[in-house]
Simulated scan of single mutants.
Amino acid sequence: MKKIIDSCTHGLSFLIVAMLAAMVVLVFGNVVLRYGFNSGILISEEMSRWLFIWITFLGSIIAMRENTHLGSNFVVRRLPPAGRRISLFIGRLAMLYICWLVFSGALSQTLINVSVGAPITGISMGLFYASGMVFSVAGALVLVGDLYRLATGSMATVDRYIDDAGEQA
């Protein structure tokens, strides 16, 4: 199972790099064309915005999976092992609820805007808002896995959360 998750994470990283490269080409190409040839790529700005949103949400999935998101653990570090486990469990439950809120909001916006075309490309705006649904579903899966490991795993799992965040502080 870990190999499958690692390969999915690697695939997401590759996709993010490809999207970032496309953004760079679009924006840099547009700048060169505007200043050098008094022309431009019409869809550059819109597509760059869409790619940026998708990169942000896909990167958030990876950050959640690798426990590299922003956090402070100065209180949790001082708790006894059982307190750490309970604190992290409650935190993951709260994050799971937030994933539900993001999913329900993104689903509503996707359904509202599925028949609305983007101003320049005409691509369905539902695709724009679907990024929130993709993040929330993948994030919820990561959180459910974390909750399972916290409920049944060894103390090493809990210490990994504390130590990972501590190294970045």
Rank of each mutant, 00 (worst) to 15 (best):
I62S: 04
T68R: 09
G36Y: 14
E46I: 05
P81D: 02
D159P: 08
S39M: 01
S154M: 01
N67L: 04
L141K: 09
Y148K: 10
G59T: 11
M19Y: 14
W100F: 10
I162E: 12
R92C: 02
I123A: 00
D159L: 06
V17W: 02
L111H: 13
Q109Y: 10
V114R: 14
A138E: 02
E45H: 10
G145D: 07
S44Y: 02
V31K: 00
V134M: 06
D146Y: 01
D6R: 12
S154G: 10
L20W: 10
V102G: 03
L15N: 12
F14T: 08
I120T: 12
K3R: 13
A18F: 07
N30S: 12
S115C: 03
E167H: 13
Q168D: 15
G36Q: 11
R77P: 01
V158L: 04
M1F: 15
M47D: 06
R92L: 06
S72Q: 11
F57E: 11
M155C: 01
M95S: 02
L15F: 14
L147P: 05
F103V: 02
F14H: 08
G91T: 11
C8A: 14
S13M: 01
K2M: 07
R34Q: 03
G91H: 06
A165V: 14
G122F: 06
R65V: 02
A151T: 05
M95C: 00
V142L: 03
L143I: 09
N73G: 15
I61L: 11
S154R: 03
Y161N: 05
G105F: 05
M64T: 11
P81H: 01
N38S: 03
W54L: 04
V24D: 00
I123N: 00
G166D: 09
A94T: 12
